[in-house]
Amino acid sequence: MEPLIIEGTAKTPTVNFNASEGLIEIKGRSIPENSIEFYKPLVDWLEEYSKSPAPHTTVNIQLEYFNTSSSKCILDVFKKLEAIYKNKNDVKINWYYEEDDEDMLEAGEDYESIIRVPFNMIEIVD
């Protein structure tokens, strides 16, 4: 399966999805006016990946900002990962937040309470 690599912009995050390594990374800012367009290829890729995932999938989400339009699309990404986890595959979600950014920590906790996959909350200290 081809990796999905998207360069970040001022409004959209850097994406690095690699099936052979079982690596799913989204980093940067996610504040597009309409997020569906941006996230559709990500969700489609995960749908395909879920058919034969790597034995261990590591998910790194490191967002500086995301808007409410993105928040639903990010949930869609997590729901795909939850399906992989439910099929008895190992999935680890690392949710990174900057030092003292309680809002971003809380946002991770919101997802953790909806998605039944263990989250690691990781504070990035400068």
Binding site: P32, E33, N34, S35, I36, E37, T68, S69, S71, K72, C73, L75, E106, D110, S113, I114
Partner: peptide
């Protein structure tokens, strides 16, 4: 507010414009 946010996040579809009805809450 947190509970309402999570409920809408989990149950309401995005509009075609990309709005999620979460802006004011957020």
């Amino acid at each position: 507010l947190k509970d309402m946010y999570k409920f809408i996040l989990n149950h309401q579809k995005l509009s075609t414009k990309g709005g999620g009805g979460l802006g004011l809450l957020d």
